[in-house]
Write a protein that binds this DNA or RNA. Structure first.
Length: 493
RNA sequence: GGCAUCGUGGCCGAGUGGCUAGGCACAGCUCUGCAAAAGCUUGUACAGCGGUUCGAAUCCGCUCGAUGCCUCCA
């Protein structure tokens, strides 16, 4: 029996604002779409949090035995710089600034995106489609919407008619907005002459002669509007109605609202059953922003070359730090918070590596079965990773007590403890034990063990000057010696 | 100005109508040649003001503050 038949997952659905029991459209299968990055600059840490959150969700569903098709797009065209201007898009603008071909920009930042996510140990999605690879599909959807009368053409551009759509549908249901309020609160904007209403959004934008990224269409040369690609690609790979759509909170409005409108206008169906939104990452309590300098790139964090943090932090520590907060909460990144997480992370990893050496006995003081189910309960409750981690630390405490001979565990319980711990820490949370992952660890282990022997000899001879020198210099190199009842072990930080 | 989310102990962060997560830091103890590591113990917090209730940090109202969106943004 697959695990998903034993565990019931609840998710916070942004569409209803409630926590709901998750039931996929087809038993055992899940279709999940997550809005990917716009590849016009290096991916920053805030972006990473969203993708890490959904990676954890993807991993948990897979762990439960679901067959998941996870689609995460690459936006390589179509985001308008400013829809009041002449229709230049972000990719094209950057290309001109750097004297590059648009696709050269796309390539560079796509590679950066993949490299970075790989460092954070993200699983690749099932399909990673690009906007430029789905121009035809987008044009077809525009035709559908025009045919249903929910869009209009003006000077080679096509706009979605929000007011008309709202008369028969509910525009704003995801973000809790009402069109009347939005019209009443419209800001003074520059000329919006082509649009009937400021709330209308572009489905297709006419390309000016100097515009490099352009495709032919029934309305002339141009490029697709900024919400359309996700509707085209999610429909193509997951169907007109699918299980989960995710993305950052900041995409809820207008992006996801417009996706719902486009899908409902073109095929009459509400596209998504469960909308999941990952919350923002702030830095020292403030929004990350390049213009104010309150911003950090993953590479700066891994190298320690930045003005914000006191030291370098490896990807797994950063991932662990993120997993200590719920994905729907705003998380604030700071040096002290990362330092605290790093210690906790090492404690967790060391407890895991201690499991295999644990002595076993005829009885267990630790109810491993109940503990295992508690771990599932935490994840079933809207992927509550902070609670899961709290349970993992309960196990850490027990492992250390057993190691010290203060409690006992049976062979069978030890195996289950090891399996559950392994599943949740590595498969579900996606953490990596970075001290064991480097290739020189065997050599290193031999060298350090030799030094430990020398130190112990010195200690036996009461030559504490030598023994302390070995200990202190190893500490300075990031190698910590641990004197226990059964000899000395070490860990590398 | 509008919409939304949120305000928890020294810090980070869960949770929730009564049984007071977890991590880090701090203090004491055990262990140690001294430390570190590990373990044990202590610390009763939920922005403010009203209200509902036998009982609220948890529900309602107001005030203040934060963050996000309303223009591209994970």
């Amino acid at each position: 029996m697959p695990l998903y038949e034993q565990q019931t997952v609840k998710v916070t659905n942004s569409l209803t604002g409630r926590k709901e029991t998750f039931n996929p459209l087809k038993k055992g299968y899940i279709g999940m779409y997550v809005c990917g990055p716009t590849v016009y600059s290096n991916v920053h840490l805030g972006n990473c949090r969203t993708f890490i959150s959904f990676d954890m969700i993807f991993r948990y569903f897979k762990h439960l035995g679901f067959k998941v098709r996870y689609v995460r797009n690459i936006t390589d065209a179509g985001h308008l710089e400013n829809d009041a201007d002449d229709g230049e898009d972000k990719i094209a603008k950057k290309a001109k600034l750097e004297q590059l071909e648009p696709m050269e920009v796309v390539q560079r930042y796509t590679v950066d995106f993949h490299d970075t996510l790989k460092k954070f140990n993200l699983l690749p999605p099932s399909i990673e489609p690009t906007a430029t690879g789905h121009i035809i599909e987008q044009i077809e959807i525009i035709k559908e919407i025009l045919g249903k009368g929910f869009a209009y053409e003006k000077n080679g551009s096509v706009y979605f008619d929000v007011v008309k759509f709202n008369a028969s549908h509910e525009y704003g249901k995801l973000s809790g907005r009402k069109l009347e309020d939005m019209i009443a609160n419209t800001r003074e904007l520059a000329a919006q002459d082509e649009k009937k209403n400021p709330q209308d959004f572009a489905l297709w934008k006419k390309a000016e002669p100097q515009h490099i990224m352009r495709w032919p269409s029934p309305w002339g040369d141009g490029f697709p509007g900024w919400h359309l690609e996700c509707t085209a690609m999610s429909t193509k790979y997951l169907g007109e109605n699918f299980d989960i759509h995710g993305g950052g909170m900041d995409l809820k409005f207008p992006h996801h609202e417009c996706e719902i409108a486009q899908a409902e206008a073109s095929n009459g169906k509400s596209p998504v059953n469960y909308w999941l939104h990952a919350n923002m990452l702030t830095l020292n309590g403030k929004k990350m922003s390049k213009s104010t300098g309150n911003n950090i790139y993953p590479s700066e964090m891994f190298s320690g070359k930045n003005a914000i943090l006191s030291k370098a932090f490896p990807p797994s520590v950063v991932r662990f730090f993120m997993m200590q907060a719920h994905y729907t909460s705003i998380l604030d990144l700071s040096d002290s918070a990362l330092l605290a997480s790093e210690k906790g992370y090492h404690k967790l990893m060391e407890a895991y590596s201690a499991i295999s050496q644990l002595p076993t006995g005829p009885t267990s003081d630790f109810d491993v079965k109940a503990w295992t189910q508690q771990c599932y309960n935490a994840m079933n409750d809207d992927f509550n990773t902070p609670i899961l981690i709290a349970h993992l630390f309960d196990a850490v405490k027990r492992i250390n007590l057993i190691k010290e001979g203060k409690e006992t565990i049976t062979e069978a319980d030890k195996n289950e403890l090891s399996n559950t711990f392994n599943s949740f820490v590595f498969d579900v949370l996606g953490l990596e034990d970075q001290s064991t992952s480097d290739g020189n660890s065997q050599t290193m282990e031999g060298v350090v063990n030799l030094l430990i022997d020398l130190r112990n000899q010195a200690r036996a001879n009461k030559d504490f000057e030598t023994s302390d020198k070995i200990r202190d210099e190893l500490t300075a190199l990031g190698i910590q010696l641990k004197d226990g009842k059964d000899g000395t072990t070490f860990s590398i930080n």
